[in-house]
């Protein structure tokens, strides 16, 4: 184990995957430059060459279709998008081809395509460089969606996805790229559909997704000083969703806050609350709450960014209101 940053963990996962199998390819804009998509692909081209580390034209739609074709011919491609927003050009390939190939082939053909897409935040990223869209993807049958929060998880989930058999979208929040955790040096797996309890507690369940995980943990730490003992559950993957882990925790605490780094309406936070309501009915001791972004596109101005993203105070206030309602 070594203490490693999120971006270095991605780089290591890609390097090791390409070493393990010559079927693994990396495609994306500028993946073969030294800057390497925020350091995540740096150095790969020196070892594996331009046929396998493939700088792609600014044609995201074709890139995704190319990934599908590669997988159909037996390869295991990893596609890289500098922003989720850029990937929107490839929705047809994802929705009409990638997600349903296994289905339409009557279960005969699975497509191990891994799509990495990065979410921007801060420095005025604005409305076309900051979207997450993970709930859209999780809505589709046939796709797996991961939103890893730690360096350990991103490496394990990336490897699991590359060497698994289903198409996968991995949403990586740019703000996490400098954060470190213990990362095993060898190639290892983190399984889909297994949430992890990051902090045990008995007063309230905080279900957190991706970039919200460190914020949830910080809030829990702060609230502990006031005598609130919060449990923080990191979903890690939202498709499949670890329903059991969510329900077990709520069964214990009876109170639920969901923190999702995305718009509030029709999103994952609503899905989690609906799931618990459906499975556990009136087990809620108080009304559940969602901590999300407003139903608005992202402003560029830093003055408005501050209003847009939940902060320590607003997060703690919502959790308190659920605990003391």
């Amino acid at each position: 184990m070594t203490q490693q940053t999120y971006s270095k963990a991605i780089n290591q996962a890609l390097y090791q995957a390409m070493e393990l199998s010559s079927n693994v390819l990396v495609l994306g804009q500028l993946v073969d430059y030294q800057s390497g998509v925020f350091g995540t692909t740096t150095g790969l081209v020196d070892k594996f060459g331009t046929q396998r580390v493939c700088d792609f034209p600014v044609a995201e739609s074709l890139m995704t279709s190319t990934g599908i074709g590669l997988a159909m011919s037996g390869m295991r491609p990893v596609l890289v998008h500098q922003r989720v927003d850029f990937m929107m050009y490839s929705l047809d390939a994802i929705v009409n081809w990638l997600s349903l190939m296994r289905f339409k082939s009557n279960g005969k053909l699975s497509l191990p395509v891994t799509i990495r897409a990065i979410v921007g935040k801060g420095w005025g990223q604005g409305p076309q460089h900051s979207k997450s869209m993970h709930a859209w993807f999780a809505h589709l049958p046939g796709l797996r969606v991961a939103v890893p929060a730690t360096a350990y998880d991103i490496k394990g989930l990336l490897l699991e996805s590359i060497f698994g058999e289903n198409p996968t979208i991995i949403i990586e929040h740019r703000s996490l790229f400098s954060m470190t955790s213990e990362v095993p040096d060898i190639p290892y797996r983190v399984r889909f559909g297994e949430a992890v309890v990051r902090r045990k507690g008995k007063d309230v369940t905080i279900v957190a997704i991706g970039f919200m995980v460190p914020q949830a943990l910080r809030a829990a730490e702060k609230l502990a000083l006031e005598g609130i003992d919060a449990e923080v559950l990191d979903l890690r993957t939202i498709s499949p969703l670890d329903e059991e882990a969510i329900c077990n925790s709520v069964a214990k605490t009876g109170k639920l806050v969901v923190m999702d780094p995305a718009w509030k309406s029709i999103g994952m936070a609503a899905e989690v609350i609906a799931l618990v309501s459906e499975k556990m009915g009136s087990n809620f001791k108080t009304k559940p709450a969602r901590i999300c972004y407003p139903n608005s596109h992202t402003p560029a101005s830093s003055a408005l960014e501050v209003e847009y993203y939940p902060n320590e105070t607003s997060i703690a206030n919502v959790i308190r209101s659920v605990v003391y309602a």
């Binding site: 184990m1 921007g120 935040k121 801060g122 420095w123 990223q125 929060a149 730690t150 350990y152 740019r174 703000s175 996490l176 790229f177 400098s178 954060m179 470190t180 955790s181 213990e182 095993p184 992890v196 309890v197 990051r198 995980v213 460190p214 914020q215 943990l217 910080r218 730490e221």
Partner: peptide
């Protein structure tokens, strides 16, 4: 391994 130290700075994009 599930340990994660949450008290770290966010990466600030340039």
């Amino acid at each position: 391994s599930s340990f994660f130290d949450q008290n770290q700075k966010e990466a600030m994009p340039g």
